[in-house]
């Protein structure tokens, strides 16, 4: 109980005395990828919630007032970074649940991984920093 309160206070303190260090450096950036286990074998890795090719001005204006899907995607970015910095069951479960919500509605197992993109000189480097175990969709949504 005391530890939970201390942890909560630790989460609250940066909001009361913020550091405001936005974009000090452009850190390696995570992408969430998943693959399905279907008929006894693993499928190809695919990106979770890929970005659209283009977004029109009207849609940009609409998103100023209503942008729940993108804000959820930003939360997944936070969870991915937390999972690497300070791994917790919570971050992995939040990611698994959100991936499971987008999968077809039948019993299926899946696995997800975190790919981090960074720049070295003029090259964009991809590295896999985390790979989950096999997860059942029903379990992830429970």
């Amino acid at each position: 109980m005391l530890l939970s309160l201390l942890r909560l206070f630790g989460l609250l303190l940066p909001a009361l005395i913020p550091s405001w260090r936005f974009f000090k450096t452009v850190a390696p950036s995570p992408r969430v990828e998943y693959r399905l286990f279907y008929r006894g074998s693993w499928g190809e890795w695919c990106e979770d919630r890929p970005r659209p090719a283009r977004i029109g001005t009207l849609q940009m204006i609409r998103r100023l007032f209503w942008n729940p899907a993108w804000n959820e995607q930003l939360f997944m970015v936070s969870c991915s970074e937390r999972l690497i910095d300070t791994p917790t069951v919570h971050s992995a479960a939040e990611l698994a649940r959100r991936i499971a919500q987008t999968l077809p509605e039948h019993e299926v197992d899946f696995q997800f991984r975190l790919v981090f993109l960074s720049r070295e000189e003029d090259q964009i480097i991809k590295s896999v920093e985390y790979e989950s175990a096999r997860i059942s969709r029903a379990e992830a949504l429970a």
Partner: peptide, 19 residues
């Protein structure tokens, strides 16, 4: 919410909301 999401849901904007 900080407890539920184990930190801010939306980074700096949640911190500013709490502040």
């Amino acid at each position: 919410m900080l407890h539920r999401f184990q930190g801010p849901y939306n980074g700096g904007s949640d911190k500013m909301t709490i502040l």
